[in-house]
Design a protein around this nucleic acid. Structure first.
Ligand SMILES: [Mn+2]
Ligand SMILES: [Mn+2]
Ligand SMILES: [Zn+2]
Ligand SMILES: [Zn+2]
Lengths: 147, 147
DNA sequence: TATCAGATGATAATCATTATCACAAGATTC
DNA sequence: GAATCTTGTGATAATGATTATCATCTGATA
């Protein structure tokens, strides 16, 4: 691990009161040392090269921990089971980052997306999908009640 | 099922050479008769009220069939396993609808999204996420080779 | 109505994720 | 550095989601 990455890792662990174990080091490194959007399984395979005895469960647990701490992000705010949409009208989605509920948002609520630069060569554009992330009414209410 | 929905359903089945079974009717109806973004399990529960002997596998198979035929959409173009992103810079994603690969797209490649209308009351906005759907270079190449 | 490709239901198999718990290893204090 | 405490880890079982298999049935067509 590059010294820079290592220091960053130690700092983050301290900041979030996490023990700086070597498993966590390797998991963190596997993610930040190369671009990509890896699955837990992929991280596991990568880390196993250095730590053959690591458990897949450890990878899952620490990815959760890191995401929760804000050290890493999940690609999709509504990952989970497969969801089907019967609404054919062009529209966007409101996604609650707390309860992961999804609601339609009228197409005209947002202005159009404009392509400024070039897309990577060879990519054949089909359409833009916009998701508005936030906290839904119900979750906000539930949160307020707590205080 | 409303006559209108029923006719639409028959037409779509014919158009895509699908047998218009009553299982398919009910599955289709469960989706188009009410707004929402349902999981296969939820559709199954709904349809079972009318067809108690329907199998969950049938629901899955037909949802796939409908999506493949373009009669319905999947909410997420990259549903599948959990994906982690270590890239902290604001950026978007290119998602291949064929192989579901995900690549970063520079923030400045797209113009900003502007809020035109109002969001539903109570929704606390956090951020906009844009996914550019299309066919990636590799998939386009693979497709071309076939002809 | 007879025929048959395609659809269904039951269920096993697979894949993804989480829970459990005994043991090990960081962090902290001396 | 050793003792202690707390948290993390590895093994693995359990759960949940999705897909595969296959015998049987049914819608479409003539
Ligand atoms: Mn929708
Ligand atoms: Mn990214
Ligand atoms: Zn919510
Ligand atoms: Zn692709």
């Amino acid at each position: 691990m590059r010294r820079e990455t290592y220091n960053e890792f130690r700092r983050l662990c301290q900041e979030h009161s996490l023990a700086a174990t070597h498993q966590r080091q390797k998991i963190y490194e596997a993610l930040v040392s190369r671009p990509g959007h890896y699955s837990p399984e992929e991280i596991y395979e990568q880390v196993k090269q250095d730590l053959p005895s690591i458990s897949l469960a450890t990878v899952y647990k620490n990815l959760k921990t890191f995401v929760h701490a804000g050290m890493l992000r999940e690609v999709s705010p509504h990952h989970g089971s497969w969801r089907i949409d019967a609404n054919h009208h062009p529209h966007h989605h409101l996604v609650c980052t707390r309860c992961r509920s999804i609601t339609d948002l009228d197409f005209d609520s947002l202005g159009p997306v404009k392509l400024r630069g070039k897309l990577p060569s060879g990519f054949r554009l089909e359409k833009f999908t916009i998701e508005v992330q936030g906290i839904c009414k119900a979750c906000t209410a539930a949160e307020t009640k707590q205080h």
